[in-house]
Design a binder for these strands. Structure first.
Lengths: 230, 230
DNA sequence: CGTGAAGTTGATGTATCTCAATTGTCGTGG
DNA sequence: CCACGACAATTGAGATACATCAACTTCACG
C-alpha cells in the first residue's frame, strides 16, 4: 500500500507538532479523524462544561482560554497562538472542559477527534510523552504567573503583558513598536485579575510615565526589554 | 523465575499509585532503583535549580513545594500529602527543578531514580498516561488558584485555606475542630501571596468575626463548609 | 533564664474596589 | 457621509484593603 501523507506535514509548525511522531499505519487513523475548522472572531470553539471532543491545535489566529465563575466574573487564563495545543486537559482527564476557548481573531484550528486521538496515543507512546511534557510546560507557566502576581505590582505586570503582546502583534519602525490590541481592555483586566476601571488607571499611569502611548486599540511603545509570557 | 513483589504493594496508597500498572519484568527494574528516605522536619528533599534525580512519592508527613524569587521573596505553591507525587515536572521535562521541596513534618518519601523511571515509562505506557493525568490535574488546581485569587477576598481565601488544613490536620470534638498548624504564618502568607503582617491582621479579623480562635499554632473552628484548594 | 526567631501591633502611604456618571468607539441604517 | 444606538472605556469620589517600616511581644529552646 502507498505511503500515506502526514496530515501535519505541510504545517509550518510540523517540527514541534504533537503528532509528528505518528508513523506507519497510525497515520491513516490520524488522517481519518483529522479536520480543520475556521472560526470567525468571537466564535467559541468549545464551551466551559462541555465534554471533550478531541485535541485542538491552533493553526492561525488567536484563541482565548477563559473561565467563568458562577457569579459572572471571568478570568483569562491563557492566549493560544498558532502552533499551540488547546483542549488537551479535558482530553487527558476525560472530564468536561473547565474553560472556554474563544477566537479573538479570525482563526483556524486543526482537530483530532477524541476517540481516534486516544487510539493514536495508545499506539504511539512518543505522542503521549509529548502531551505530558506540554502539560508540564503549561504547569510551569501557571506557577510563574502565581509567583508573578504575588511579587510584582500590577503596573509592572501590565507593562510586561503589553510587551509580550507587542512581541506577537507589533510592527517596529524607527525604534517605535506599534500594534492594534487583539483583546479588549476587559480581557487585559481579566488577565491581570483586576477590575476594568483599575486597568484603565494603570494604563494612564504607564502613559504618564512615558512608557507607552495609546489611542483606542492602538498602542505604541519603545524598544525591547526581555519578556516572559502571560 | 519467581514472581517479584511490587515495591508499592504494601503501601496504603497502592490503589492510586503511579507505579501500580507496572508488571512483569519491569517490576524488577522498578525494585532496583526504588528507595525510601526519611526526612526530618525542615529537611530539603530537593533544591530549586537542581537537576531531577527521579520521581518522588510522599509516603508520610507533609512536604512544601516552594519557589524563591531572585529578590528573596518566596511563594508556597503547593502542600504535598501522603500518596501524592512530587518532582515529576522536572523529571518529565528533563529540566532543573524550579521549586524546592521541604519537609514540614517528619516525613518519608519513596523515590524511583531518574534513569530507571525513564525506562519503566518507556516500557509501561499506562504509567506515562497516569503521569500525564497527574499533570493535568495539577494544572486544574493551578487554574483554580489563579481564579480564586482574582475573585475572592484574601480574608475568604484564608478562611478556605484554614478549612482545608483543618480537614487534613484537625480533630473534631463536640462540633469544634482543633488542629496544630503544620506550617508557619509566613508560609500561610506565602500561600495567599500577602505579607506576614497582613496575614496576622486577616487572622485577627476572622477571630473578631467569630469564625475561629487561635493561640500560637493551635487553631479552633466550628463546623464543616465545603472546600477546594491547596 | 537569656536569646534569637516568629509573630504582632501601630502609623502612614499607596493601591484597589465600588458605584455612578460620562465619554468614546464602532458598526449600522438612513 | 453622517446620525444614531449599543457597548466599551474612562473618570470621579469615597471606602476598603494592603504594603511598608519600625517597635514591640511572644514563643521555643538551649
Amino acid at each position: 500500500m502507498a505511503i500515506e501523507a502526514h496530515p501535519c506535514a505541510n504545517c509550518s509548525f510540523y517540527e514541534h507538532s504533537l503528532w509528528r511522531p505518528v508513523a506507519g499505519g497510525n497515520i491513516s487513523t490520524l488522517n481519518r479523524s483529522f479536520t480543520r475548522r475556521n472560526l470567525d472572531a468571537g466564535h467559541v470553539l468549545y464551551h466551559q462544561g462541555a465534554p471533550s471532543d478531541g485535541v485542538y491545535c491552533v493553526s492561525q489566529g488567536l484563541i482565548a482560554i477563559r473561565s467563568f465563575a458562577p457569579n459572572g466574573s471571568s478570568s483569562l487564563l491563557r492566549l493560544a497562538y498558532p502552533g499551540e495545543l488547546i483542549g488537551y486537559r479535558a482530553f487527558l482527564t476525560e472530564r468536561d472542559h473547565r474553560t472556554e476557548a474563544q477566537a479573538l481573531l479570525p482563526s483556524r484550528v486543526c482537530i483530532v477527534a477524541h476517540r481516534d486521538a486516544k487510539n493514536v496515543l495508545r499506539a504511539c507512546p512518543e505522542v503521549l510523552a509529548g502531551l505530558a511534557i506540554h502539560c508540564a510546560d503549561e504547569l510551569d507557566r501557571c506557577h510563574d504567573r502565581i509567583q508573578d502576581a504575588a511579587r510584582s505590582s500590577n503596573k509592572d505586570r501590565l507593562a510586561q503583558l503589553l510587551d509580550d503582546l507587542m512581541a506577537s502583534h507589533g510592527t517596529e519602525k524607527h525604534d517605535i513598536r506599534r500594534m492594534r490590541l487583539p483583546i479588549s481592555r476587559q480581557d487585559l483586566a481579566d488577565i491581570l485579575g483586576v477590575q476594568a476601571e483599575t486597568l484603565s488607571r494603570l494604563m494612564k499611569r504607564l502613559e504618564s510615565e512615558g512608557r507607552m502611548r495609546s489611542s483606542g486599540r492602538w498602542i505604541e511603545m519603545h524598544k525591547p526589554m526581555t519578556g516572559t509570557g502571560i
